[in-house]
């Protein structure tokens, strides 16, 4: 991977506690020598929060579709009488 992507990978391991996460001391040392690392990590954390929000939105959409399939339409009254 090119260096920019490797950097995303490094930060991801740290934030998501991946198998290649650095020990805390080493991560702090890296931040000392790399002035932008902390800010980049904070920005990447925001991306993960946004992805969670987007994922929830998609899951809700899928659940609405499931609901409509199970309980909407012309047989809905029948399903209400005999829930499946």
């Amino acid at each position: 991977m090119r260096p920019e992507l490797e950097r995303l990978h490094l930060i991801e391991q740290q934030l998501l506690n991946g198998p290649a996460a650095l020990p805390a001391g080493e991560w702090q040392l890296r931040q000392l020598f790399d002035g932008e690392l902390a800010a980049d990590a904070a920005a990447q954390q925001q991306l993960y929060h946004g992805l969670r929000a987007a994922g929830r939105q998609q899951l809700r959409q899928e659940l609405r579709q499931i609901h409509a399939r199970l309980y909407g339409g012309r047989w809905a009254w029948l399903r209400r009488l005999w829930p499946m």
Partner: peptide, 12 residues
Amino acid sequence: AEETAFAVRDYV
């Protein structure tokens, strides 16, 4: 954090 997450969600 919630507001930022919703803003990022729009970019996703």
